[in-house]
């Protein structure tokens, strides 16, 4: 099925009040950021979308795909699931070696391409400082390595038209590289983020408070202009961060 749009129908916030919108349409090609204080319900929103909930989560939201209730096969068969979710978790609990885990995941998503496992590990290592190798156990990965692997797995094995990323900037992975890897034409991408740069790079910004969406904001022209300057400063900061991490002494 070709994914044209997701529609979110409002649920209730933590006080039991209806969220401040009637229906929220996200069409293919849109990038959306979800911002708000810790505990405001950002993860719950992306989890609702991933679950394709029909009112049976704590929020009571409903999620439609292409204007309809999605078929149950989306949930029953990972190879038909149009959504990948990179959760906020910073460690795996799967007690398997990396290569075996990836091989089974590729089988579940019916990705038969030669070299899938190798390519996932290669991409993981582009995003992480210390390299991982195929015989390491999933449970031994660090927080940053875990998140790098989740992103690489989502790109190579998930290959879905809808990508949900819960705090891409977390745990010190290379944010810019990760965003570039994920952003391909025609996808719907939602970033839960505390990072203003990630937020400004998106077309739409959802502001959350107290468990509900309180504002749907389209990035303004003024914001788009400011974007360039802010990104430059962010790059400067990340260069400094990398140098400090490598143990260099800075002389401004």
């Amino acid at each position: 099925m070709i994914i044209k749009r997701i529609t979110v129908y409002p649920g209730l916030n933590k006080n039991g009040e209806k969220e401040g919108f009637e229906e929220l349409k996200i069409v293919s090609g849109n990038t959306v950021s979800i911002v708000g204080p810790t505990g405001s319900g950002k993860s719950s929103l992306v989890n609702d979308i991933e679950m394709l909930t029909q009112g049976d989560t704590i929020t009571g939201r409903k999620i439609f795909i292409n204007g309809k209730i999605p078929p149950s096969s989306f949930r029953q068969d990972p190879s038909k699931n149009p959504i990948v979710l990179i959760t906020q978790h910073t460690n795996f609990l799967a007690d398997l070696p990396i290569d075996e885990f990836l091989r089974i995941h590729a089988k579940a998503r019916r990705i038969a391409a030669e070299g899938t496992v190798e390519r996932t590990i290669y991409l993981t290592n582009k995003l992480t400082g210390e390299k991982v190798h195929e015989k390491m156990r999933m449970t031994s990965l660090s927080g940053g390595q875990t998140r790098a692997m989740m992103i690489a797995d989502a790109i190579v094995i998930g290959q879905a038209p809808i990508v949900l990323l819960d705090e891409i900037e977390n745990a010190g992975i290379f944010k810019k590289e990760a965003m570039e890897m994920v952003r391909t034409e025609g996808k719907i991408i939602l970033f839960v983020t505390h990072d203003p740069v990630v937020a400004l790079l998106c077309d739409i910004r959802l502001v959350m408070k107290n468990g509900g969406i309180v504002k749907v904001h389209r990035t303004t022209e003024l914001e788009k202009k400011a974007r360039k300057r802010i990104i430059e400063q962010d790059i400067l900061l990340s260069v400094v961060r990398e140098r400090v991490r490598r143990g260099e002494v800075l002389s401004f």
Partner: peptide, 14 residues
């Protein structure tokens, strides 16, 4: 709620 989507799908396969 305690595991990633990828782990869920691998467990399903098991």
């Amino acid at each position: 709620d305690l595991i990633s989507q990828a782990e869920r799908e691998v467990f399903r396969e098991k």
